[in-house]
Design a binder for these strands. Structure first.
Lengths: 254, 254
DNA sequence: GTCAATGGTTTGTCCGGACAATCGAACTTC
DNA sequence: GAAGTTCGATTGTCCGGACAAACCATTGAC
C-alpha cells in the first residue's frame, strides 16, 4: 500500500524576495508561521526534509535550518533526527513575555485606561534602593497608577524608577503603558526578575480597587533590567483576583 | 590615554576536546557559562571578537557563534553589531521553567515531602475532559497530594491524567515529583498552558493546609503537553500564600 | 564649536559542502 | 512468529569563506 503522505509545503506558496532587506531566514520562518496559524500546515504533519526544501526555495540548507530553528524555539515545530520536522499539535498561544498590563488588556480587547494617582520624587527606601541599585535615601521617581478595564479597576500599580532615565510625562502615562514609554525612549529591555504571590486586601487597598477588606489580591513584584544590566524599574503591583489572573505558556527548554 | 581593556577570555583556560562526543559548541558554551558564574568574566566586559576567538581555539566561526548564541538565548550575553559581545550585568537566576514544585523545593533545600491523599480512577468532568482532550465521562486518573516542606503543608495538588500513559505507583508518587516520573516513563514534556490566580480559602481548604478560613491562597491551573501535542496532565493546585510565591526570571525575546 | 563625512571594527546573514548520529522500516535469521 | 541486523532517510554538527549592516571614534568642513 503506497503512502500518499506528501510534503505539505509543496502546495504552499513559499518563496523569498531577495531584493528585500528582510533576512531570508526570517521571511521563510514568517511564511511557515502564518501557514501554521492558518491551518495550512496541519498539526502532526511532516515538513519535508531540509535539503529538498532548500533546493526548492533556492536557499542554502543553513538558511532553511535557521528559519526552522526559530520556530522550534517558539515551540511551533519539533525536530527528530532520522524522522523529520513536525508541526506541534499546538494549544500554543504565547509564551510568557515581558509585557505591560496595558498591552495585555488592549490585546484582549478590554479597553484599558489609567488613572494617575501620583508622580513624584521620593527618597529611596531600603527595599527600593536594593532593587534599583542606588543609594538608600537618594531620589527616585515614584509613580502610582490605577489600571481600569471597561471602567472597572483591575490593578493598583506602584513603580519606582531611577532619575534621569527618561521624561516621565503625566499625560503619556495615562494614555499608554510604562514599557512602551521606555522602549520609545531608546531603552532596550532585557530581563526581569518577578515574584508572584497572594494576600488579602487591607481596608485601604479595598477602597482603591473597589473590593471589600479581606478580598483576595494577586501580587506581583518585578525588577526590570535593560541590556546593560541597569535596573530601570521596580514595580509593586496588586491585582483584583476576582478580575485578573496571569495566563501564559511555558516551553521546555531542552 | 591608552585603554588597557584586554580580551578577558585570553586568560581563561578555554579549549575543546575533539575526542569527546560532546559537541564542540556545547563544550565552549559550558566553559563560558561557568566562567561567568565564577566571576572570571566580569559583567559588562567585552568578549573579544568571534573571528579571533575562533582562531585561538582552533574552531570555525560558526561553531563559536553557536556557542555564544546559546548563551545569548539564556540571557547571559548581549551582542551588538559593531561593538562586540558583552557579559550581562546579571541578576540572572533562572528563567521560568516547566518544573515540578517538588524539584523547586528540593533545589531550595526545603526538604520536600508528599502525602498521597487519593489515587483513583474517576469519570472525567467537563472541565477535565476539555483540558485533556478526552470524552466527558471517560475514565481518567485522579491524584490528590499534599506537599510539605519542613513538615509544614505548602500546597494541595490535584492532578488528572489520561489512562494508559504510565504506571502510577503510589510509593513513587510519595517519594518524588510527578514530572520526574513522566520523564522517567519516556514522555518528552514540551509545553504547558498555565493560569495563576488567587482566592481565599474555604473552611475545608483551610483544614487541609493548616490555614484559617478566608486565608489567601495562590492558585495555579496547568495543562501540560508532550512533544506530540497530547495533553499528558491537568493540574489544579492551591498554595498557601503565606508560605509560597512564584519566583522567576523573564527574558525579552527579540 | 558644531555638525557631517569617513573609516575601521564587529556582528549579521548567506553560501556550499562534508561527515556523524539517530530513527524507523524492511529484511534476515533462528 | 520473534528477535536481531542492515540500510535508507533525516537531522546534528562542523568547516571555510564572502559580503552586508551597524556602531563608534576620528577626522574634516563650515
Amino acid at each position: 500500500m503506497p503512502k500518499p503522505e506528501v510534503d505539505p509545503t509543496v502546495s504552499l506558496r513559499l518563496g523569498v524576495d531577495r531584493t528585500s532587506p528582510v533576512p531570508l531566514y526570517f521571511q521563510l520562518s514568517q511564511q511557515l508561521e502564518t501557514a501554521i496559524e492558518r491551518g495550512e500546515l496541519t498539526p502532526g504533519s511532516l515538513l519535508g526534509n531540509e535539503i529538498e526544501l532548500a533546493g526548492r526555495l533556492g536557499l542554502s540548507r543553513p538558511t532553511v535550518r535557521q528559519a526552522i530553528q526559530s520556530l522550534v524555539d517558539k515551540g511551533l515545530l519539533v525536530r527528530r533526527r532520522g524522522v523529520g520536522t513536525q508541526v506541534v499539535h499546538s494549544q500554543v498561544k504565547r509564551p510568557m513575555e515581558l509585557t505591560s498590563l496595558y498591552d495585555d488588556l488592549e490585546a484582549a480587547g478590554q479597553r484599558p485606561a489609567t488613572r494617575l494617582l501620583a508622580n513624584t520624587l521620593v527618597p529611596a527606601s531600603a527595599e527600593v534602593a536594593a532593587a534599583l541599585g542606588v543609594a538608600e535615601g537618594s531620589e527616585v521617581h515614584r509613580i502610582e497608577r490605577l489600571r481600569l478595564a471597561h471602567g472597572e479597576p483591575v490593578a493598583h500599580l506602584r513603580n519606582h524608577l531611577p532619575v534621569g532615565l527618561f521624561d516621565l510625562d503625566g499625560d503619556r502615562l495615562e494614555s499608554t503603558g510604562l514599557y512602551r514609554l521606555m522602549r520609545a525612549a531608546g531603552i532596550t529591555l532585557h530581563s526581569a526578575r518577578q515574584s508572584v504571590g497572594a494576600r488579602t486586601a487591607t481596608a485601604a487597598e479595598g477602597d482603591r480597587l473597589d473590593e471589600r477588606e479581606g478580598a483576595p489580591l494577586l501580587t506581583m513584584r518585578r525588577t526590570t533590567f535593560d541590556d546593560t544590566g541597569r535596573a530601570v524599574e521596580y514595580g509593586d503591583h496588586t491585582y483584583r483576583a476576582s478580575r485578573y489572573s496571569f495566563e501564559f505558556q511555558l516551553l521546555v527548554r531542552s
